[in-house]
Simulated scan of single mutants.
Amino acid sequence: MAVKKTFRAGVFSVVKHCYLPRAVAAHPRFELVVVTDDANQPDWVHKRNQLFADEFGIPYVTDVANTIAEYNLDIAAVSPEVERHCDLAVRAADAGLHVIADKPLSTRLSDCDRLVETVQHNKVKFMLWNRNYLPAVIQAKEAIASGAIGELHSIHVDFYFSKDAGPPKGSRKEGDPPIDWLERQMEAHADGSDGGVGTEAMGELQIEGIYPLGYMHLLTGQNVQRVFARTATHFHQANVDNNVDDLATVSLELDGGIVGSLCIGRIGAASHPDIGEIKIHAIGSEGGLVITEARPEVSIYYRDQSPLEFKNERIANENDFLLMEDFARSLDTGSEPILNAKNGRDIAATVFAAVESGKSGQPVKVIY
């Protein structure tokens, strides 16, 4: 039996919570060989990149073009600030590298369109990071595909993260300056809640909307045509000060006559005993199903346990490994990854339409 190729991976910035390059490193088909970024990035970016490079014993090169030219890379693992996702991904794809990028895809639909065009033109593979291989999501897909509930008519996802995002709403005293978005996100790096790191403020719809909308795409196979959203800033002062949502509801009209809805929010650590209320509800012509995304899990309690320790742990969760397995299969066979550039672009377009609807109070068509 022929030995399968080991793909050489470059980490194109790693300033967010670094689960993506760690997942690449953990899979036997991939090898991290270098971290790279542009020399003109601020000191905090270089510091985080260097720390990651040192941990894995690989060089950090502050010249992306030189790295591509000298390190014989196969793929790029892209995880910078959100507004730089597409720029680094496009440069990698233009050089013929396959790309795995962190979510959300971008803060601008034009960047997403440019990425899709570049990926298609250079005939490379692209995967947007997602949670579609969680055990509960796989179970939901199998149940729907088997016809267990008949023809799918509607789908709803609750996606409430019980995480904090700095001081609670109403805590800023008169005369205090508003919370700086980037500074708050840099502080959040310590507990891994810095998914919105960057200079452009983003609400929960933009930061986490990829996950529930990714579930809907996987389970229905349909695009969203129109949305109506209500958004609010209910929990966190940083969101108030930067005029972005931390709570939203969205109604969706999908192709195939399917109706969808989602509720999403960052609802604070004190609001829920688990990671949050994350469930998938599907209704078909012959029945319905409700699946809790976090299960299976175990809860761990012991004497003198720190109140900050997370007590619920997922088990049988191989999402990160299975995503990398999916990407390796894509590179081996030419098949498309579970969430490719076009899928990611269409989900981003849905998110942007929902944000617009939340501001206007009117239904908004998704741009394709």
Rank of each mutant, 00 (worst) to 15 (best):
R266D: 09
V157M: 02
G221A: 03
L20W: 06
K173M: 09
H272T: 01
D241K: 04
R230F: 07
I68R: 00
I258N: 09
H234N: 01
Y133F: 11
G196M: 06
L262T: 05
D255P: 02
A341C: 11
F30Y: 09
H189V: 14
Q50T: 06
F56C: 10
P168T: 08
E31I: 04
S357H: 09
R295S: 02
Y133G: 01
K125M: 04
I267S: 00
I68K: 01
H153G: 15
T233K: 02
S299W: 00
G334S: 11
V34T: 05
D255K: 08
V259Q: 09
T292M: 01
N122M: 07
N223Q: 09
P104C: 12
A165H: 14
E208D: 14
C86E: 08
N242Y: 01
A69W: 00
G260K: 03
L152W: 07
D63E: 00
S251K: 14
N66K: 06
D102G: 13
K16L: 10
L128M: 05
F310A: 15
E174D: 07
T67M: 03
V35N: 01
T220C: 07
E83S: 02
R8D: 12
Y60T: 02
A165E: 10
G150S: 03
R184C: 08
L331G: 06
H121L: 14
H85Y: 13
A143E: 06
F321Y: 15
L289T: 00
R22G: 04
D274F: 10
D164P: 13
N40D: 14
N343M: 04
D164F: 11
E286P: 10
H234G: 00
D326G: 08
A282C: 10
V11A: 03
Y215V: 11
N223E: 08
F310H: 15
V82N: 15
F7M: 10
I207E: 11
D320N: 15
A26L: 12
V78M: 08
D43E: 14
A148M: 07
K16P: 04
I75A: 04
N319G: 07
K173P: 02
D37F: 02
G209P: 08
W181S: 10
G203S: 12
K123T: 02
R91A: 08
N49T: 05
A328P: 13
L213H: 05
Y160P: 00
G57L: 05
I144W: 03
N242Q: 00
D158F: 04
G196P: 09
Y302H: 07
E208P: 00
A76C: 03
K16A: 14
K359S: 14
E81I: 14
L289D: 01
E309Q: 14
R91T: 08
G334H: 08
E187F: 09
Y19R: 06
E70K: 10
N223S: 04
D158R: 07
Y368F: 11
I58R: 02
P28S: 15
R114E: 14
A65F: 00
